[in-house]
């Protein structure tokens, strides 16, 4: 699962689980930058979200395999930056399209949520 770690100043760290689709969206977005192996994807997500979003590592791989099965990403074996054999994932054409679709949906969702929050 994916969760957000909210670090408050006056309260203990809170974990909020995010829905499954969010993880897929983040993986697709990360891979849109170029082929990556699993570990790098999780690192990237954490970095890009300034340590707010953390992918529970156990759930990253099932998600990758699921996306591969759907045909949105494909895998090939390559050599990592430290000269080790690693499995690299990259977006397929279908994956690019899916990323657009999910980004759209996400933006609409956040806008709607923000709107609801703003009106109160």
């Amino acid at each position: 699962m994916l969760h957000v770690e909210v670090k408050g100043e006056r309260m203990p760290t809170q974990r909020i689980d995010l829905p499954q689709g969010t993880l897929d969206l983040l993986i697709l977005r990360t891979l849109a930058l170029g082929p990556q192996h699993g570990w790098a994807v999780s690192e990237r997500v954490q970095q890009m979200s300034s340590d707010v979003l953390r992918i529970q590592q156990g759930s990253l791989y099932p998600a990758l395999h699921r996306l591969e099965r759907r045909g949105w990403i494909k895998a090939r074996w390559g050599t990592s930056e430290n000269n080790r054999r690693a499995k690299y994932y990259e977006l397929t054409k279908g994956g690019h399209r899916q990323l657009e679709v999910e980004k759209d949906a996400w933006e609409k969702l956040t806008a709607a949520v923000a709107q609801v929050l703003g009106t109160v």
Binding site: Q56, Q57, G58, S59, Y61, P62, A63, H65, R66, E68, R69
Partner: peptide, 18 residues
């Protein structure tokens, strides 16, 4: 610890592969 049960993850991956 961070990763969780290795076998469980494998099982989930297998499930994901369908």
């Amino acid at each position: 610890i961070e990763f969780g049960g290795l076998d469980l993850v494998k099982e989930h991956c297998r499930e994901a592969r369908g």
